[in-house]
Design a protein around this nucleic acid. Structure first.
Length: 869
RNA sequence: GGGCAAUUAGCUCAGUUGGUUAGAGCGCUGCAUUCACAUUGCAGAGGUCACAGGUUCGAGUCCUGUAUUGCCCACCA
């Protein structure tokens, strides 16, 4: 095995990443370890679109990898189960675009042929996204990869549907839905976007009334006129029938009173068109109004519109408006009316609300347990503020339309009766056509062509996947954490809870961790049109995968959007390089055949052997041992608490400030090989979940290590060998060194001599001399020179009288500053309410700071007195 | 219309139950250097924590209000 010192001066990720990933996977490290003794830990990966490309959002799955790697190192039986999504309408739209290039449409195929073609297309593409996810170092168990249209998944979805139907929670009904004429399908409210826009508001004469509408073309579907029952202008007309002149001759309408009508809007009169407006539909239900469909599923007017039949709705609108004008039925038009209009979120087509027959899932019974699960704490949402949002949404949830008239999806397992044999049920829920044939007889039935809303099947993903892989009964369910984007809290998370509880009587996951959006360097949303999109793969190629992972971990908090910039990523690339060079330096120090002594006894790195802490010699050793133990505790606590950013920051400063800048430099004077190695190994272990590649690459060059880091143990803090006094000694040396460096930098001195009256300091003279850039540290009886203020040692930098005199004002300034600080502390300590109320530890802290400050001031006074002598 | 978040250094952001003289990275200034690392080291400048009140011995942190920005939900024809 080669020593790192023979390797590159800089870490080159591309040389290592692919090989390391292969070794991990080939060794079976991604699979649940059957020997693991601790509880199973499960994460189900939110399935990315099988036809999609990796974007920054997917890179946020790094949170899942951190958790998985952390639990694996701790000895849990970990399963991170990956999958891909057929992404219903999204993929169908993409594929239809492909077809359009060849001048074809889906109507050139039967639904079955179309499905097969898209399936082939999808299966051919899916390796791309999987390879991309793997390149991010994700330690998911790819041998268990599931696809949302796998037969075993579909089977579970069918079972759920059947159970829901048997329980009376699924029904078929005619309702007003959001109809997309382009997709020729209905969509849920949540899939609709509203856009504010200007449209003409037409004031039309209806017999005795003038009323305002933006949709004159739907007037042929009017089945009432509504006014507010409290409206003095019109209340006497409620219950009467008006007769009015229209474009298709005269017509009669009932006048109804309904609180929905706002007397202050327009003329306070509304035409009611239950077939084409959700609010009118509701009014229609309240008043048992007739539903007359004017616009068909193709977006064109029906025969009811007489001579306007066949016209596209938008064309009909202008035509009707102008005809009304000509006939003198238009009172006036307001051209400055701004309102919000519904568009299909996926394809951007104007939504046409209309009445169609759909499959509905009754949610009232399902949502209560889902609300309770979060209220009771059975499910914890991180960050917690989303718990309220979740509960509010569910409480207002209405029955869910789960059928879609799209072809790329799971066909709803229903066969309908043909003919009018009333002795047979109108439909049969079964996946088995033979059953339908037997029941209805050959030729007397037809299969449903609608498919399930993608969210209906994906809401079953946690248990469906585990059932399909055979892991469901092996302790992997309920899963531990669901990590996903906060933007799909409603669409996905809430529904997973509903259906998970329904189907398994258990929560699908115990914790929901929500990440925010990944924005650009200035916190702006990434978009192709803005040209500010950072492609994760470009970044990893340039800076290494670990750099990206660190950049998405540090400075990003749950539920909040984070900013990603090349400068930030570059900084973490440098961090990886720092780690690499620290390792290179340490390994270069070690004698041939070295193996750390602590490995031979059980110890701090759990599961892999070492015991206690290596022998500690210098103050620096004790100090470093404390820093390491503290970091282990803090990082562990932070990860347990989903505070990954804090964990990352701790590690960053542990490596760079504590270990590299202080300990390694100090160790150059008196190296302790075992502690250098122990420190390195501890840091590698702690950093591994976030930056797995560079840590594993270094680990593979530790000659005494044979197992991979990915399956080695998580460190345990141990302070057994630590002498706190010795550790504190190093803190004092550090403050001397920093103080001296500052004076040297200020005065541009070159290798001056340091004088001290304290023998204890000269014990560590070499460290101080080397680290502070001195030529010598001398013990003297009485010091004179540039006084370096520290609270524990009296030290002076040798200098000529002119310089000493010139710096005198700095001592005075320092004294004044300390004096001000002291006053603040004294004020607290003479305040009896502070002494009574503040915790003892806080008061003790204040006292000790007061004492230190007093001591420093008296030293400064002495120095100033001596200078003035 | 309702709700949520954000507002802390030039920029991007941390800041766990209130308790050091408020932090990091980048950027900036000065110096150093090639003996682990210039993807480096050392030193430094830079903030009345959006604003106004309040609670408290003590507020970036808790409460009330205001402003600005962003997001979510609802959808008065």
């Amino acid at each position: 095995m080669k020593h790192l010192r023979e390797l590159d001066k800089a870490y080159e990720p591309s040389k290592y990443e692919a090989d390391i990933y292969k070794q991990w996977e080939d060794s079976g490290a991604f699979k649940p370890n059957p020997q693991a003794t601790k509880d199973p830990f499960t994460i189900i990966m939110p399935p990315p679109n099988a036809n999609g490309d990796l974007h920054a959002g997917h890179a946020m799955y790094v949170v899942e990898d951190i958790l998985t790697r952390y639990r694996r190192m701790q000895g849990h039986k970990t399963l991170w189960l990956p999958g891909t999504d057929h992404a219903g309408i999204e993929t169908q739209v993409v594929y239809e675009r492909e077809l359009a290039k060849e001048g074809k449409s889906r109507f050139d195929f039967t639904p079955g042929e179309f499905y097969d073609a898209v399936l082939t297309y999808t299966k051919g593409n899916q390796h791309k996204i999987i390879d991309q996810l793997r390149s991010l170092g994700f330690s998911a168990d790819w041998s268990r990869l599931k696809f949302t249209l796998d037969e075993d998944i579909i089977e579970v979805v069918y079972d759920t549907f059947k159970q829901l139907h048997d329980d009376g929670l699924v029904y078929r009904a005619n309702r007003i839905v959001n109809w997309c004429p382009r997709c020729n399908a209905a969509f849920a409210d949540i899939e609709i976007n509203h856009r504010e826009q200007l449209d003409p508001l037409y004031y039309i004469k209806y017999g005795p009334f003038v009323l305002a509408t933006v949709r004159p073309e739907t007037k042929f579907g009017d089945t009432a006129i509504a006014v507010n029952p409290k409206d003095e202008r019109y209340k006497h007309l409620i219950g009467t029938v008006i007769e009015a002149e229209g474009l298709l001759g005269s017509f009669k309408l009932n006048v109804i009173g309904d609180d929905y009508v706002n007397p202050d809007f327009g003329t306070g009169v509304v035409k009611v068109t239950p077939a084409h407006d959700p609010n009118d539909w509701e009014m229609g239900l309240r008043h048992q109004l007739e539903v007359k469909q004017v616009i068909g599923t193709d977006g064109r007017l029906t025969e009811i519109a007489g001579k306007y039949a066949g016209m596209a709705a938008a064309d009909a609108r202008t035509q009707v408006a102008s005809d009304l004008e000509v006939r003198g039925l238009m009172d006036h038009v307001d051209m400055n009316y701004s309102h919000s209009v519904a568009y299909h979120g996926r394809c951007g087509t104007l939504i046409e609300p209309l009445v169609t027959e759909q499959w509905w899932l009754a949610v009232d019974e399902l949502k209560q347990p889902a609300i309770e699960a979060v209220k009771s704490g059975a499910i914890q949402i991180v960050p917690a503020r989303f718990e309220k949002v979740y509960i509010d949404w569910l409480e207002n949830l209405r029955d869910w339309n789960i059928s879609r008239q799209i072809w790329w999806g799971i066909r709803i397992p229903v066969f309908y009766r043909l003919g009018d044999d009333e002795s047979k049920k109108p439909y049969l829920v079964t996946t088995d056509e033979a059953e339908a044939r037997e029941y209805y007889g050959e030729g007397n039935y037809e299969a449903e062509t609608d498919t399930f809303d993608t969210w209906f099947s994906s809401s079953q993903w946690p248990f469906a996947t585990l059932m399909a892989t055979g892991d469901f009964d092996k302790g992997f369910y309920p899963t531990t954490v669901m990590e996903t984007g906060r933007d799909i809290l409603f669409q996905w998370v809430s529904r997973m809870v509903m259906l998970g509880l329904y189907r398994t009587q258990q929560v699908p996951f115990r914790t929901v961790y929500l990440h925010g959006l990944v924005n650009d360097a200035h916190g702006k949303k990434m978009s192709k049109s803005k040209g500010n999109v950072l492609n994760p793969l470009d970044i990893t190629a340039k800076y290494g995968t670990d750099a990206l992972r660190l950049a998405l971990t540090i400075g990003i908090t749950p539920g909040n959007d984070g900013a990603l910039s090349e400068a930030k990523i570059e900084g973490y690339r440098n961090f990886c390089n720092k780690l690499w060079n620290v390792a290179r330096f340490i390994l270069g120090q070690l004698p041939d055949g070295y193996s750390p002594a602590y490995l031979s006894s059980p110890g701090p790195i759990e599961g892999s052997g070492p015991a206690g802490i290596p022998e500690l010699n210098s103050p620096a050793d004790h100090w470093m041992a404390v820093k390491l133990a503290d970091a282990i505790d803090n990082v562990t606590a932070a990860v347990e608490d989903y505070r990954f950013s804090e964990a990352g920051e701790q590690l960053y400063s542990l490596l760079w400030n504590d270990f590299a800048d202080w300990y390694l430099e100090a160790s150059k004077v008196s190296p302790s090989h075992d502690l250098l190695v122990y420190g390195l190994e501890t840091i590698l272990s702690l950093v591994h979940p976030v930056a797995p590649f560079v840590t594993e690459a270094i680990w593979s060059h530790l000659p005494w290590r044979t197992e991979q880091l990915i399956v080695s143990g998580w460190p345990n803090a141990s302070r057994t060998n630590v002498d706190p006094t010795a550790a504190a000694d190093f803190d004092r040396l550090m403050s001397v060194i920093s103080g001296v460096r500052a004076v040297i930098a200020d005065e541009q001195l070159s290798k001056p001599v340091l004088l001290t009256t304290q023998p204890r300091l000269t014990d560590s003279a070499d460290v101080v001399r080397k680290m502070a850039g001195l030529s010598e540290v001398k013990l003297t009886a009485e010091g004179r020179g540039l006084f370096v203020p520290t609270s524990h040692y009296e030290v002076w930098i040798e200098a000529d009288e002119a310089l000493i005199d010139a710096r005198k004002h700095r001592l005075e300034a320092q004294r004044a500053e300390k004096q001000g600080y002291l006053q603040g502390l004294e004020a607290k300590l003479t305040n009896s309410r502070y002494l009574e109320s503040a915790p003892e530890a806080v008061v003790a802290e204040t006292r000790s700071r007061r004492d230190d400050t007093l001591m420093l001031i008296s030293k400064l006074d002495e120095q100033l007195a001596a200078l003035n002598r």
